[in-house]
Simulated scan of single mutants.
Amino acid sequence: MICPEPKGTLDTMASIRHEIMIDAPPQRIWDVVRDVGPVHERLLPGRVVGTRIDGVERFHTFPDGHVIRELIVSIDDQARRLAYSVVDGARPALDYHHASFEARDEGERGRLIWITDILPDTIAPQIRIRTEFAIAEIKKAIEGAPTGDR
């Protein structure tokens, strides 16, 4: 099938990518990332104060009481990849959100990759700053966790 050329301008979404080396084996990084329930304890303690799971939906409560709702799209143990989408409660409001985490093997250490796609692209600078701080907090949480944390 041949698709016609779009008329006018094509609004593309912003794609924000962060990669960080973590001083932990990739399996431990993946264990924390794939554990979708206790985000407030294992992945982002302090930034998220509560997490609730209802089927394939995850609800995060933040320190100010604000709640966002996410859809857990995929948990792929073989690829060590988690995909999710914010579907309600984003501040600022988003037309579209999809993100993924991937834990990769770098020998004794692991690399965490976080990709976030959003619309409108005009709020990408705000989201980039948030995710930049958050991935540093994730690194700190994983590196500081006891080896047998789960």
Rank of each mutant, 00 (worst) to 15 (best):
R47D: 10
R42H: 12
E57D: 05
A24R: 03
G89P: 07
T122A: 08
L119H: 14
L94G: 03
I118H: 10
A79C: 05
V39I: 04
T122C: 11
R130H: 12
A141T: 06
A90T: 06
H97S: 12
I22V: 15
V49N: 07
I129G: 10
Y84N: 03
G37C: 03
Q78I: 12
G50F: 04
F59Y: 15
F101V: 01
D77F: 02
E41M: 14
E41Y: 12
K139I: 11
R111S: 02
E106L: 01
Q78A: 14
Q126D: 13
E132P: 01
V56L: 13
V39Q: 02
S100H: 15
P92F: 06
I68D: 13
D31T: 08
G89F: 12
R91I: 00
V67P: 03
E41T: 07
D77G: 02
K140P: 09
G110F: 01
I29M: 06
I135T: 02
I22G: 00
I75Q: 02
F59E: 04
I135E: 04
P125Q: 05
T61L: 07
L112Q: 07
Q126G: 12
D95T: 10
A103R: 05
A90L: 05
L82V: 08
E102F: 06
R91G: 03
V67I: 00
I72Q: 10
G55E: 00
V86K: 09
R52E: 15
Y84P: 11
I129Q: 14
L82D: 07
E106H: 08
T122R: 15
D23F: 11
Y96M: 09
D117R: 11
A141E: 06
S85P: 14
I113C: 10
P25S: 03
K139L: 14
S74A: 15
I138M: 08
D95Y: 08
A79T: 09
V32A: 09
R34C: 04
T122I: 13
K139E: 13
E108A: 14
L43K: 05
P120A: 03
T131V: 15
L82I: 02
F101R: 02
F133C: 10
D117T: 13
A24Q: 00
P45H: 13
W30R: 04
S100T: 14
G144A: 06
Q126H: 10
G107M: 08
V87E: 01
I142N: 02
E137H: 11
V48M: 07
I53G: 01
I135G: 03
S74Q: 07
Q78L: 13
H40S: 15
I115W: 08
R81W: 10
R130A: 13
D23W: 08
P92T: 09
R47I: 09
V33K: 03
Q78V: 13
E132H: 12
P26R: 12
R128E: 15
V67Q: 05
E57K: 06
P45E: 05
L94C: 07
A103N: 00
R28A: 08
L119P: 10
E137N: 11
T116L: 12
L119E: 14
R42P: 11
G50H: 14
D76S: 09
D64N: 08
I127P: 01
I29S: 02
V36P: 05
Q27D: 15
I53C: 05
E57N: 09
L112C: 15
D77P: 00
P26G: 11
